[in-house]
Design a protein around this nucleic acid. Structure first.
Lengths: 247, 247
DNA sequence: CGGTCCGTTGAGTTTAATCAAGAAACGTGG
DNA sequence: CCACGTTTCTTGATTAAACTCAACGGACCG
């Protein structure tokens, strides 16, 4: 069975057997990484291509006053291209949130792979378009949504992404985010997250406890979030996700 | 002389003469569009590939309560790939801010072009990586920067991007953004933008008047913004920009 | 069993939003 | 080139959302 990264790319472009075979070599590069380990630090020279095969990661940036902003959450199957020509040094860090399996491909190998397999490049390009869609959705949230809406929206997004990679159960998903990490993701403080979460719990909408998201009223949650299923949903061409729990 | 889109892609990948020739056909597709015209509306089926050859555009999204969030600003040379398989319908609109020259390439033609010219695909992919970098920088700003820092940061970004496409003079640049548009870009209100702008003007840092940005103290501006020149700068491999006015 | 990290709550403060009103700039047709 | 309507900018007063500071309870871990 192909790994989640290959399966994800397969949704985004028609890969032939040779393409898949090339991608399967990635598994040899996989290594185990402990939780809360920095894979790439802000200021490092970029270069490699990272793939999360198992576990969660985050892209984060520190700002002057010591605050942190998480600019992306990585789930199994997600990748980051730290393109060397694009930027002289990393403007953000990438680290694990949980114990993870991560594959690292160096620049030269990736270049060769993409040159030999244009369909993989094509799929990677589409995958990149979707990542940007997620970024833009975050921008909308941070700019124009209240803290309650924002938290609800993030949970919808993560639950849906989790569904697409088989991480989500019915109305529940493992979610290794402390209130502080949620705060750094949503541009709020952990104290405020705590209060918002308390209200959502009291309203029987959802809860986050013991490292797990629990959705009590999916329909209400999506309504609070103003979640546009379209923005992530059908991107994956997975009808079962469309008909999933979040309706 | 190649158009700005071709020149931009040339920075991101080595294009040969055949690649450039293919891209030059784009010019035939150019059409003039009036200011404040919607090219693609939220909810429309996606599909085409848009290139701004002249003028400014914006990607924007409306949220429930009628508020608007701008999720991207488009300058000459910038493109948007409204990929059809990625999403069932547009989750945001794209419109012009000024009178513009815009080229539209339909999906089939683009697919053919990218298949025939893998180097163009490669360059487009890198261009996409950089766009995502800009998005992530916006997320950092909206999450963790004050209104003053945020406005300063946006001006640094736009000035630098303007420099790269020859839109910026020494310490000055045409900037067709009303205070309301700035507010919708930064997730603030126009009233608040007005006050922040008044303070920056009073502090002799910068000003926006008569549709133009004027930078009075570039060094102070970048310090207020916490502007990381690296995140956009060297991406373009343009040493002259690195040594540019914003130091 | 003690330490550390995480979650919880209250009180007071700050930032930016809202509401409202008037001035300036812009655009368009006469 | 002017007159008029509209958009944009400006300012003040008030309100709301989220932050800060501080303290304590609970969970997890070695």
């Amino acid at each position: 069975m192909d790994n989640l990264f290959i399966r994800k790319l397969s949704y985004f472009g028609s890969l032939n057997e040779s393409d898949r075979a090339a991608l399967r070599h990635i598994d040899c590069r996989a290594r185990e990484v402990k939780a809360h380990h920095e894979l790439i630090r802000e200021g490092d020279p970029p270069g490699p291509f990272l793939i999360f095969l198992k576990g969660w990661g985050a892209r984060s940036k520190l700002v002057r006053n010591g605050q942190r902003q998480i600019v992306g959450l990585l789930m199994p199957g997600d990748s980051c291209d730290l393109h060397a020509n694009a930027v002289a040094e990393m403007d953000h860090s990438i680290g694990t949130l949980t114990a993870s399996t991560v594959a690292t491909i160096n620049r030269a190998e990736l270049d060769q792979l993409l040159e030999d397999h244009p369909k993989v490049l094509r799929a990677l390009y589409v995958s990149q378009l979707i990542d940007e869609g997620i970024c833009r959705a975050w921008i909308v949230g941070m700019g124009r949504r209240s803290s309650r809406e924002r938290l609800a929206h993030l949970m919808c997004e993560l639950y849906m992404r989790g569904q697409n990679v088989g991480l989500a159960d019915e109305n529940q998903m493992s979610l290794p985010l402390t209130q502080e990490l949620l705060a750094d993701t949503l541009g709020l403080t952990s104290v405020h997250i705590n209060r918002v979460l308390r209200d959502l719990r009291a309203d029987q909408v959802m809860d986050i406890r013991h490292g797990a998201l629990e959705i009590n009223d999916a329909s209400l949650l999506t309504r609070i979030a103003g979640f546009d299923e379209n923005y992530l949903h059908r991107r994956l061409n997975q009808p079962q996700a469309v008909a999933g729990v979040l309706r």
